[in-house]
Design a protein around this nucleic acid. Sequence first.
DNA 1: AGAAGGACCAGTGGTCCGTA
DNA 2: AGAAGGACCAGTGGTCCGTA
Lengths: 238, 238
Amino acid sequence: HLLSADASHALDALSQEGLSEEKDAAGSGVWEMVVAKQRRRSRMASMDEDDADETEDDGGNERQREHPFIVTEPGEVARGKKNGLDYLFHLYEQCREFLIQVQNIAKDRGEKCPTKVTNQVFRYAKKAGTNYINKPKMRHYVHCYALHCLDEETSNALRRAFKERGENVGAWRQACYKPLVAVAARQGWDIDAIFNAHPRLSIWYVPTKLRQLCHAERSTAAAASSSITAAGVDHLPF
Amino acid sequence: HLLSADASHALDALSQEGLSEEKDAAGSGVWEMVVAKQRRRSRMASMDEDDADETEDDGGNERQREHPFIVTEPGEVARGKKNGLDYLFHLYEQCREFLIQVQNIAKDRGEKCPTKVTNQVFRYAKKAGTNYINKPKMRHYVHCYALHCLDEETSNALRRAFKERGENVGAWRQACYKPLVAVAARQGWDIDAIFNAHPRLSIWYVPTKLRQLCHAERSTAAAASSSITAAGVDHLPF
DNA sequence: AGAAGGACCAGTGGTCCGTA
DNA sequence: AGAAGGACCAGTGGTCCGTA
């Protein structure tokens, strides 16, 4: 259930270059196949071939939610009624494409042009039939995507570690904050500037909690370093 | 009723450099004197020495509005119960200072930092006792301030012309659109980019009507130039 | 218990229109 | 008639909490 080296590489290339609208619409490429498969599983859960234990009737007005995420390592496709983290990150790329389309329409019409993924973009995604994208979900995992963008090595290592330990998605999500704050520390603490400097991350609002953590940690670091400076390293007041 | 050359120059220097918070708080400088005088006139209209025809009683709960603007030429101070256009533009500089203060507070606290003059900034200005600054007024004249920032020569010429012709503020305000659209035409039509590239203008939202005018004019220009290109200059289809 | 997302809410950008 | 600005409104960013 890991993608081949070739497939991983193709996926990687797609991520780096940005999917063109045509490519995405055509649904060609390795990642699109994976995603389409996950879509099918999610939308028509009872028809999934791998999943013989599906017994509930699927009739009529039943609210179909997306399958929950599980911690997967890079390149791994989730089994059963689950979605993996590559798929989660792919949703952020899809939102970016929707934003670009909304921007192009706005420019054509001479209207205000959004620079971020706004409510308007989520509405556009819904209208385009992409029912599995919604604001609460995307906002919930933004900082996880940020770590993936800013320090992919660390992000991948964290995924492997949490998968191995059998941790759930909530635990992994919580754990993403700490290495992100470390990235911010290395880059001067301005988390807004760090988001804005990254081409794929700049379109996302900085999550409130991440901003607060950076601020708190910077204050602590500043206090520590100033007490060192003021008192001298060998005469700390404790 | 024109400021001396020295005073005008001082004012100009202030405008170019941005008033430091201390300078402004101290209320020193030529412009502050002029503004303070206008403030006094506006707030305590019945006590204005030049204005003997003031008879209404000023008692109690009467709603004191700002005096209306009149078209003045650069450096000219408005007579009577009127405010001039240098004063109008000064209000934009004051808003900028309030924004900077709000930004500094936000940075200190590690909160979201506004890049534009938002409701929050207008609220801050009110709390600071600056009751004569309000959102509808500032939004109403943004494009006039934009012309002043982007093409001061033209802005000054327009003011002199409209003053001479005895036009009212509404007429002058309307007339500011056309030269601004001409500026946009020269700079590639992207009015948002033009606002953002200017240090004092970048903090203001582009007014809807200005954006629409630029879009309409660009379309017209593009249609004209493409019919020339397509048909050849000597074989126009009319 | 863990997670997805409909739906709510405080405060926004925008400007109309009752007021002076 | 001309102009200043209180106050409203549709749609926003943000996320809680009833749902599965």
